[in-house]
Simulated assay, not measured.
Amino acid sequence: MRTVDVINFFKKKSKIAEVLGIGRSAISQWGDYVPVDRQYELEVKTGGQLKSDYSVQKLNRENNERKQQP
């Protein structure tokens, strides 16, 4: 999950901080990608509108397995 995608979803870092119960400065320390534990929390708190890297990889694996079945 890219940090920029989370910011675009919530529009403001202050809203992300509020949802996660953290300070805005913590978000600035994320870099390009959201930490794994926060990815899961954001996926749950957005009702799956944002997907963790784990969920995306799992969905991709499941789709690939379906394509390979005769």
Rank of each mutant, 00 (worst) to 15 (best):
K51H: 10
K45H: 05
G23W: 00
N8S: 11
K15R: 13
G31P: 04
N63D: 11
A17F: 00
A17Y: 00
V6H: 07
N64A: 15
G21Y: 03
E65G: 00
I22E: 05
R66W: 10
G48C: 13
D32V: 05
V19M: 07
V6C: 06
K13Y: 04
N63Y: 15
G23H: 10
R61M: 12
E43G: 04
S55L: 11
K58E: 13
Y33N: 08
K12Y: 14
Q49A: 11
G48W: 14
G21Q: 07
I16F: 04
L50V: 08
Y40M: 11
V56K: 13
G48Y: 13
Y40F: 09
N64Q: 15
Q49Y: 08
T3M: 02
Q29A: 11
P35S: 08
V44N: 03
N63T: 14
T46P: 11
E18F: 02
I27G: 07
N63Q: 15
V44T: 08
Q68R: 15
I27N: 06
D37P: 02
Y54K: 13
Q69M: 14
S52D: 06
K51M: 13
S28W: 07
R24I: 06
I27F: 05
D32N: 10
P35D: 05
Y54I: 14
Y33Q: 04
S25E: 08
N63H: 12
E62M: 13
N8R: 14
T3R: 10
V6N: 06
D53K: 09
K13F: 02
Q57Y: 09
K15T: 12
K51I: 08
Q29Y: 03
D5M: 04
R61H: 09
S52C: 08
E65K: 14
F9Q: 01
T3I: 02
I22R: 09
I7E: 02
I16W: 04
V34L: 04
I27L: 06
D5P: 01
S52V: 09
I7P: 01
F9G: 01
L20S: 00
Y33V: 08
R2E: 10
K12N: 13
K67P: 00
V56A: 08
E65T: 05
L20I: 00
Y54G: 02
K45Y: 03
V6G: 07
Y40R: 13
G47R: 11
